[in-house]
Amino acid sequence: MTPDTHTLETLDTPAALIDLPRMQHNIARMQHRMNALGVKFRPHVKTTKCLDVVRAQMAAGAQGITVSTLKEAEAFFAAGIKDILYAVGIVATKLPRAMALRKRGCDLKLVVDNAEAAHAVVDYARAHGERCEVWIEVDTDGHRSGITPEQEALLEVGRILKGGGIDMGGVMTHAGSSYDLNDRAALGALAEQERAGCVRAAQRLRDAGVPCAAVSVGSTPTALATEHLDGVTEVRAGVYVFFDLVMHNVGVCALDEIALSVLTTVIGHQPDKGWVIVDAGWMAMSRDRGTAKQSHDFGYGLPCALDGTPLDGLMLIGANQEHGILAASDGSARDDLVARFPVGTKLRVLPNHACATGAQFPEYQAVSSRGMVQTWGRFHGW
């Protein structure tokens, strides 16, 4: 982290901005909710990949982290965080790298959802005299990977791990289909489906004699919608720390809670078309068009004034590699935009998907309530 040396007016563009008061509000909101529900909170750090953000989450009460790449695990362990869940199915070729982390003292937990991967872990551990902790991924909504709670494969994988001397740590699930909802009752119902399914999987394993201490659930929408978490030991969520336009459409955040934006500069106009050209194209915003299938399509992002106030009736309607097109969201050729946004004007753009937009930048510019800016590093890759 570098000292305060910039203001928004002096920053080069495009730049990824973190609104620190909003971020701290989001962290406190989620941690308070998890504390009230009586569960451990293990944030997913893939959204930010930023040590400064994760330190703020840990300071608020988070216990351990979730990662989606071994590079994340290595970087955060090097910074002193030991309790790490690698929440992507492990394969044999990645085991040497994962086990190297454990040998250095990292409490890295691995995840499997099939017998082949379970056998690979057992075989590697035996061949190298290693111990490791493995969790089983459970599919509670048909969204992605995992074993459904009632499948025989769940017990098969559990027995392979236990019989192979592996520490069977628990079960985890992610109700990713929550991103497709926008109704509080539907979100609550999915949160209960997620909870009940994961608890059921854990109980089946225990009844079969397979240890299963941890029951881990989570997505940002279900974490904020759940009514109770009986039988759950921890919750994971990631995008809540920044939020984004997809989450706004889901109904779990207000526009003024979105903490990530892209600072951009007006570089030209196409008056006949009613276009304002900015220097934030898809290389800055990402190609993620997650709001296109939702009730409100924000194009490539929602433009805001420099103070973060949304510009009603406008959106980033198109994006080339380094050019963004700001225009009226209703398709009309507004003739007031040239005068309203002269060349050199700086704006902020709220992103569709904070994870995808953040991934376009090597660093964040963290903006304080006084408008001062600090540079926070971010890392890329796998």
Rank of each mutant, 00 (worst) to 15 (best):
R200P: 01
Q57D: 05
C304S: 03
D180H: 13
P14F: 03
V157C: 01
A79N: 08
L181I: 13
S332P: 12
K46Q: 07
S68W: 00
L181G: 07
L11C: 04
A284F: 05
V45P: 05
K162L: 14
L155F: 05
V246A: 15
V111D: 06
K40D: 13
A153H: 00
A196P: 02
D256T: 07
L20G: 02
V112R: 07
Y240T: 09
V39M: 12
E74N: 03
G197F: 08
G238K: 05
G238L: 02
A62L: 02
G290Q: 11
A79S: 12
V252M: 03
V53K: 01
A117H: 14
P14A: 08
L8M: 12
L347E: 05
G197A: 09
R334G: 04
V171L: 06
Q57Y: 00
A56M: 11
E322G: 01
A339N: 15
W382G: 15
S177F: 13
I277K: 11
V278I: 15
A28M: 13
N352F: 03
V262Q: 07
V111L: 14
R340E: 12
D83V: 02
L302N: 10
G218E: 12
S219R: 00
A56E: 08
V122M: 11
G129R: 06
A100Q: 06
I166K: 13
L108A: 05
H174R: 00
T264A: 14
I27S: 04
R29Y: 00
V134A: 11
E227I: 10
H6Q: 11
D336M: 04
M315S: 08
N114L: 01
R236D: 00
R334N: 13
A356K: 13
H248D: 00
